[in-house]
């Protein structure tokens, strides 16, 4: 739980900084901070988990996130389902998408060189974006995401927080907690950590490697879907290419923290989010997206293993 602890500590620090910037500013910033950052983090977790087990950068991750947002949108607009049902159905669907992608695109390449997997991952991502932007499907246009409830602001003397931010906050923390339990306290989690270290050895323990990899994609897909619906609620304009930037940011967050390391992804996500807030506040929001690539360059130049990475090169 060290990661969570650090997270909370960082949060209070940031809150203090935000207050210093000025009250007017802090409202906008707080919203910015809460929403961009937290979903980035959720995504970064999925990235890092799939990477950890499969040693594969799943570039299609941002697109699963997008599919989650669209499914959420249709469920709300056409069926007016209650929120928990929307989350549940979206997560199950994206879990299946994750499972399907692994079965169709990655499993046949088991044992192939890493570069083939990487190219395939980019291919899957482009395919999903282009195929789903057909007019009969999601269309290439921005679509309104009908928010299922009104925004309520709670005014405290130091800051303002909306119910949406609260929901995102609570869901993010519970997902983190669930992932932690899954990976560190269950038999499946133990098997995932074993497979991540050495597949051949894990199979000698009686672990079904194929199932553990599929399972990782299922869990990763479910969390991407959850992130997508949350994104739709926070920013009610969705588009078939919406997964690209969050995808890249999560990837950079995971690299910054040390790819394959769970608490690294959390801290990486936080740092990226905080940096974005600072750049938007003190420079200009146009530099915001450029900044994260500068961060990526710096990490790759100075500490390619990331903050928590040990950079063990396996031969």
């Amino acid at each position: 739980m060290a990661a969570n602890f650090a997270l909370k500590e960082l949060k209070t620090k940031t809150a203090a900084v935000l207050y210093d910037v000025g009250n007017d500013y802090s409202k906008g910033l707080a919203e910015f901070f809460k929403s961009t950052l937290e979903k980035g983090k959720g995504n970064a977790l999925g990235y890092t988990m799939v990477y950890g087990v499969l040693r594969l950068i799943n570039f299609a991750y941002g697109d699963i996130f997008m599919i989650g947002a669209f499914i959420g949108r249709y469920l709300i607009s056409y069926f007016s389902l209650p929120m928990h049902a929307v989350f549940l159905i979206a997560m199950i669907s994206t879990a299946l998408v994750g499972y399907g992608i692994e079965k169709i695109a990655y499993k046949p390449l088991r044992g192939a060189p890493k570069i083939s997997l990487l190219i395939t991952a980019v291919g899957v991502s482009l395919f999903l974006e282009c195929f789903l932007s057909l007019n009969a499907l999601f269309t290439p246009n921005y679509i309104a995401f009908k928010r299922p409830f009104e925004i309520i602001s709670y005014d405290f003397s130091l800051f303002t927080i909306t119910n949406i931010q609260l929901i995102i906050f609570v869901i993010t923390f519970s997902s983190l907690f669930l992932l932690y339990i899954l990976i560190y306290k269950t038999k499946h989690g133990k098997a995932m950590r074993a497979v991540s270290y050495d597949r051949e050895l894990s199979s000698l323990m009686g672990i079904n490697i194929d199932w553990i990899i599929s399972f990782t994609f299922i869990v990763g897909g479910a969390f991407a879907g959850l992130g997508g619906v949350l994104y739709g609620i926070a920013y009610p304009q969705i588009n078939v290419f919406m997964g690209i930037m969050p995808g890249i940011k999560s990837f950079i967050a995971a690299v910054l923290g040390g790819i394959g390391i769970i608490h690294g992804a959390v801290i990486g996500g936080l740092l990226i989010g905080i940096s974005e807030v600072f750049v938007s506040a003190f420079l200009s929001s146009t530099f915001r997206d450029g900044l994260i690539f500068i961060i990526l360059f710096i990490v790759l130049l100075l500490k390619p293993g990331g903050i928590f990475g040990k950079w063990i090169e396996k031969v």
Partner: peptide, 22 residues
Amino acid sequence: PEGRRVFPHLSVKENLELGAYA
């Protein structure tokens, strides 16, 4: 296996539990 391949980042207990995975 050759070369004592244990899971170095898992505890002794977890290593033994993995042995009984099946």
